[in-house]
């Protein structure tokens, strides 16, 4: 009897140890790159391994000497900001209309757009996109990049926001209408505040998408003076094709910080939700 209980206890402990070892391995798998990102920029001879850094800020100084490093971050902000604004504004208007007006074949349309959008900004349409931008005189223009990226993000953004709009009772708007509010007032006073978590989610998601996009700006922008950080990162190699780990790690850190900070800020301010619904 006691023997059996003891064996069960041992088995229980072993199972628990096994589970934690497994979790630690998974955690390490994801944490190590982040750890590298946190230590390598401050090491005077970074490697691809992780070691206790010999602390220095020289890497940052070197990076600042690079003429394109900081400009590229500013370029990224422009592209991401511009795209996010376009996507949020147009997706909100489209989602509102799609949610409130009966359009025949609406759901089919939405799913079709969603499916195609993954192709639009993808590699498959590289050539026609370039051709289009060329004909429209949008080569080497930030606007061109913003438009192409917005086009790719809009369907998914509309899809997410439509759910938020659907979850907002029409009686809110009707109530405001009876009090004499204009369409614009209803949008400003009622709809936008009510779906604000959705707008925040879509905005952040658009920024993160543009921030990490390499292909579109690489294709459409010619010189390094307009290139965003994702493209400049690609240039931080020595002539021989060897990565300059000091510059690369430092730049990576600077590159990832803004997006991480934005996530924290927006999530604490508005809260993220990927579904509609009113918290009453």
């Amino acid at each position: 009897m006691r023997d059996q209980a003891a064996r069960a206890a041992v088995r229980h402990v072993l199972a628990r140890i096994g589970r934690y070892v497994f979790l630690c391995l998974v955690l390490a798998f994801f944490a190590l790159p982040l750890l590298w990102l946190a230590t390598a920029p401050f090491d005077d001879t970074p490697t691809i391994g992780i070691s206790l850094p010999r602390f220095t800020l020289d890497n940052f100084r070197t990076l600042l000497d690079n003429p394109y490093a900081l400009t590229s971050l500013v370029n990224s902000v422009w592209l991401a900001g511009g795209t996010a604004v376009l996507v949020v504004v147009f997706a909100a208007l489209a989602a509102y209309a799609l949610s409130r007006v009966r359009v025949p074949g609406r759901d089919g349309l939405l799913y079709g757009l969603l499916l195609l959008s993954s192709i639009v900004t993808g590699t498959a349409t590289m050539v026609p996109l370039f051709e289009l931008a060329f004909r429209l005189n949008l080569i080497d223009s930030r606007l061109g990049v913003i438009l192409v990226l917005s086009g790719g993000l809009l369907p998914a953004a509309i899809f997410i926001l439509k759910d938020f709009m659907d979850a907002t009772p029409t009686s809110y708007e009707e109530s405001a209408r009876v009090f004499g509010a204009s369409a614009l007032q209803i949008m400003r006073h009622i709809v936008v505040p009510v779906v604000r978590p959705g707008l925040a989610t879509v905005g952040v998601w658009a920024v993160a998408n543009v921030w990490g996009n390499f292909l579109v700006p690489f294709l459409l922008l010619r010189g390094p003076d307009k290139a965003p950080a994702a493209v400049i990162m690609y240039t931080l190699y020595t002539e021989g094709g060897q990565a300059d780990l000091r510059l690369l790690s430092t730049f990576s850190l600077l590159y990832s910080l803004p997006v991480a900070l934005m996530f924290v800020f927006v999530s604490s301010r508005y809260g993220f939700r990927f579904h509609g619904g009113i918290k009453r």
Partner: peptide, 11 residues
Amino acid sequence: MVFQDYALFPH
């Protein structure tokens, strides 16, 4: 008009 769900603005 007072709506069935009252339509009070939640924000």
